[in-house]
Amino acid sequence: MRHPGRMGIFFVGAAAVAALYAMSTMRLPGPEDLRGQYMRIINSECVAARHVTDAVTAVNFDYRGFDTLGEEFILFVSVMGALVLLRQTDVKPGTPAPDALSPGRAVGASDALRVWILGMTGPTVLFGIYTVIHGQLTPGGGFQGGVILATAPLLMYLAESFDIFRRITSHRLVETAEAIGAGAYGVIGLLAIFKGREFMTNVFPLGKGGSDVNLFSGGTIPVINLAVGIEVTAGFVLLLYAFLQEMLERKEAAP
């Protein structure tokens, strides 16, 4: 260890954090008494008041929709930051993309792997869409389903090549989808203002409730859910694209 002083400072700080943390934990009233009224109200009201059966989605996209808007923009900005950092700065214009020099498979996938992956891609896409659109009814939603959907092009890359990955995730289309997904969230929030209500109020018709809840129940919740799903899918596909491009570029540069 080249920095013995650093370790000393760390252990003093860590011991202090551990001691203060232990003291504060001992003083906590314990989980039985920590219950806030907020949780009780949401759990008992969300089915009747919002026509959704997944209280987590109701919190995310309705009761605390404004907070999720902020979190979605953290996601948006960090994807953008990663793309800006990974953009190709040292490639001369007109240079063919790295994988175009060596078409074919990017990795030596066996036939068994390819068949298996090609068979799994359809169910993956279907499961992702299911997770996104059933967000207000069962566990799931735009965030989870978006990540599942973004793995589908990655599977295509594993089975085939980066060229295929790029063809099915046309760069501009994905960028536009990401912007639309992020913007739609804010626009849906603004619609309430035009109706004379507070920002992010659930102003759409709530649809069927009670035991008849369906995909269209919940007013703005399924719409926002869909917007978030599009944004997360596009954001993760863009990240995968940027990192794969970077990796292949490195492979080409050092043969």
């Binding site: 907020y38 949401i42 987590v56 109701a58 919190v59 995310n60 999720t68 979605e72 965030f143």
Partner: peptide
């Protein structure tokens, strides 16, 4: 559900 929503995002 509030905590669960927090964890998810």
């Amino acid at each position: 559900p509030v905590i669960q929503a927090l964890m998810l995002t």
